[in-house]
Amino acid sequence: MSLVKHYVRINQLVGSRSLTASGVRNYRVTIDGKTLVETAPADTLLTELYKTHVGDYSKFYKMDPLCRVGFMASELLLTAEDCRQKQWGESRGVVLFNATSSLADDRNYQATIDDSETAFPSPSLFVYTLPNVLTGEIAIRNHYYGETNFVVLPEFDSNTMSAIIEMTFCDKYLQSLVTGWVDCYDETNYNVLMFIVERDVTGHSTELSQEIKILTEK
């Protein structure tokens, strides 16, 4: 019986297929271990996924690179879970982790102010310069009123992630959590393992850490 209920993995292919002929990173998308996309270049992957699997949430196009990849992963994950009509209220939260914070959008915003002579700071870029805007986007989309949080770590660490996931269940209202690693260095360089866990992870963070480790190595 696994502690991770459903999971989505978006990661760069390894070996000879890791890059396209023009040097763009190639990605694979899997849901619950089943391949959804065998190989696709990073620059078009997310919009193609959006068009195929969502299509009716145009806010997607306003999102920064971190939110696009994290939002898309959450859409695939929650469709796999197949409980989208449920009223979750405070019983579901969203806690995500990465190492790059909102770096991708930070760079894009910084570019709008680099030359103070011609600076025209972009408010639409600035609002995305916080990683927890992603957890907010997922809560808004799914009407989750539970805890949302974003924790930045020096590097991927399944033990720390599992400990924080277990800590989050100290909130007695919380029944399940959308969680995982959503790292985004820039538009074409990202790495996702997003999954759902329930209250039964309490007291089992060592086992959860092992499961997370295995899923990232797949």
Partner: peptide, 18 residues
């Protein structure tokens, strides 16, 4: 491993809750 709680303006209260 240090934690960085980056939850916008509420980070300081979130960090204490953690």
């Amino acid at each position: 491993m240090p934690l960085v709680v980056s939850n916008a303006c509420i980070s300081g209260v979130c960090a204490q809750i953690e």
